[in-house]
Amino acid sequence: MSAHDISLTVNGEAVREAVEPRRTLVDFLREDLGLTGSHVGCEHGVCGACTVRVDGAVVRGCLVLAVQCDGARVETIEGVSDSGAIADLQNAFEKRNALQCGYCTPGMLLAAEELLAAGGTPGREKIREHISGNYCRCTGYEAIVDAIEAVVQARGGRK
């Protein structure tokens, strides 16, 4: 099938590429743009390792086609790391050892940030519910919940 030209911004940078319609967003980011921080875990929308932001909302990178992102604003873990937007969350993850192999971590951080960005002071149960679509095989989740909870308290409900 013929490739489609798409224009979008990725981490604030204008990108113009030709993509096959079958290219998923996460494969596009990883293989065409070299942004390998978004990971491929299951390719059927269950594990959350491919979590990225499209137009401000967190989505599964394996369940969105790159061709659908023409005109979109895409943000990945590399972008939010470099902007410093989640530095406090990353610090909390490091301090609490809330990652082991690190494969789920970019998705987990973006998922957690969506909850944090909504403001309020969610408790442990709400935090657990919110990250319940992101699979981590290593930690048993408690350290992740602890780290997010610490940032909830540090941010004090500010949006």
Partner: peptide, 9 residues
């Protein structure tokens, strides 16, 4: 940990 958290593993 830093590189893993930044997606630079």
């Amino acid at each position: 940990l830093a590189r893993l958290m930044q997606g630079r593993g």
